[in-house]
Structures are given as C-alpha cells and as structure tokens.
C-alpha cells in the first residue's frame, strides 16, 4: 500500500486461555480456509499441517489436582528480529511493513526448513507429502488461497486472504482504509467461546490494544525479545507462572 497515505497497522491477537476449551473449531476452520489438505495416512501430530495448533498445557499435578488448558498457537507474528525472516536464504519470508504480518511465500521456498528450526513457537509446517484431496473435493477449495505443493514450508498469515478481500472492498467503496469488521481471521470468527480478540495494535482505541494492557496478559517466550503479536491471557496463577518461567524440563 502507499507508504504515504496508507495507515500502518500492526495486527495482533489476544487469546483468552481460560475461555478456550480445546474444541478444535479454530483448527478446522483454519484448515478449510487455507486449503490445507487432509492428513496423509501416516501423518502425525509432528508431521501434520496445522497452521493453528491447539496444544494442551498441563499443570503437571497428579490426579485429581490436575489441570489442563489449551493453548492455540498460530504464528506469533514476531515483530523484531523475526527469527524466521532472518534465516531464510532466499527471501521467502518477510514482515509486511504495512501490516506487521509475517508472510510466507511457499512459491519461493526451497524447503530447507531452516525457518522451522529458528521458530521457537513451532508454528511453521512443512509439506512432507503431496497434498491430496479426495476426488471432487478440489471444487470445495477456497478460491482465495493457493494450495501449496509438497516440500515447502507454510504457516499462519492471519488469514491474509481476508485482508485482500477487505482491501478490495474498501477500494470499491472508495474508502482509504479497510473496515475492521471486514477483516476477521477464520479462527477468530468461528471460536464458539469467543476466546480470541483480533485487531490492530497500532490503533490505541481498538478492543485489542485495550485488552492487552491487562496484568494477566502475557506472551510466550517474551524474554527472547521477538516482540510477538499474539498475546495470551489467563487468570490462573499456574498458567502465568509456567508461561513466565519458560523452562519446562
């Protein structure tokens, strides 16, 4: 977008871990939205492609003092020294200066997976198999997102296709900037417990910018200094402790 006139945005997310019950609706909506192929027979939790992964986090207590929360983990859209951007040998990853969204171009990617080792959030996925859709299902693909081929890395881009649509709509309506209601990522849209708030962190009046000020809001691996834009919140003390202590072992 035009540097001079276009307002800069920094899109971010706040996920309320106390509201999330791990139903998985976001994961499914994400896969449908982004034309991720169904799993190959041998795919596992470690070889699957889930742009948004909901991971259980346990307090480690013994039964019945056990507690588990679910952590939806999309790409954290790191802002500063974005780990995956710096390492990509051929500029297949970049941070969009207009939105702060970390973009991945699978068409440029050679599949070296260096970015995956660089990402501490494990939010990047490699296509180990040729994507295969059951016969006929290709006509049910989302026309706004290109399917990826095998051998490349892919990841969450905050449903960038929806931003395309919103921008086009804004252009058609003669508006300079998009209507925030037109740009809602699929996971945010479908969350039945409304655990995710999405918005522009740059816009101080947005619900998100207000909500991230809460003392119970944190980011994973904050000390690494990557300035990720996906925030989490929990009122449970053990969650806060565990998220801040970082170390797991």
């Amino acid at each position: 977008m035009d540097q001079g006139t276009q307002k800069k945005s920094r899109y971010g997310m706040l996920i309320d871990l106390d509201r999330c019950n791990g139903c998985g609706a976001c994961m499914v909506a994400c896969a449908v939205e982004h034309n991720v192929a169904p799993a190959e027979h041998k795919a596992t939790a470690r070889t699957g492609v889930t742009w948004l992964r909901v991971a259980p986090m346990s307090n480690g207590g013994e039964f019945p003092a056990t507690d588990t929360i679910y952590v939806p983990m999309p790409c954290q859209q790191c802002e500063k020294d974005t780990p995956c951007v710096a390492v990509c040998p051929q500029n297949a990853v970049d941070v969009d200066p207009a939105t702060g969204i970390v973009g991945q171009v699978p068409q440029r990617c050679l599949g070296c997976r260096y970015c995956m080792t660089a990402c501490p959030y494990h939010a990047r996925y490699f296509d180990w198999w040729d994507p295969q859709w059951p016969k006929g299902m290709e006509q049910a693909l989302n026309p706004d997102v290109a399917p990826r081929m095998r051998g490349v890395v892919e990841k969450c881009n905050f449903c960038h296709a929806r931003l395309h649509t919103a921008r086009t709509k804004a252009a058609a309506e003669g508006r300079e900037s998009i209507n925030p209601a037109d740009y809602v990522p699929a996971c945010v849209e479908v969350c039945p417990s409304k655990a995710i708030v999405f918005g522009d962190l740059e816009d101080a009046t947005s619900e998100l910018a207000q909500a991230v000020k809460h003392p119970h809001v944190f980011r994973f691996l904050e000390k690494l200094g990557t300035e990720s834009k996906v925030y989490y919140r929990s009122d449970k003390q053990w969650v806060l402790d565990k998220a801040k202590s970082l170390q797991t072992v």
């Binding site: 994961m27 896969a31 991720v36 699957g48 889930t50 991971a55």
Partner: peptide, 26 residues
C-alpha cells in the same frame, strides 16, 4: 465427517483417533 478433521484427530494431540487410549501416568 470431513477428512479435514484429521487436523484435530490425527495431526495434533487435541483428540484421540481410532486406536488411541488415554491412561493415567501413575
């Protein structure tokens, strides 16, 4: 169900699929 539900039944630890069982660590 949609084959894409492999995302939660096979490609993550969110839900067990046919052939998985949960048991207490003790």
């Amino acid at each position: 169900i949609s084959p894409i539900l492999s995302k939660i039944f096979q490609e993550s630890d969110l839900r067990g699929n046919s052939g998985t069982a949960l048991i207490n660590p003790t």
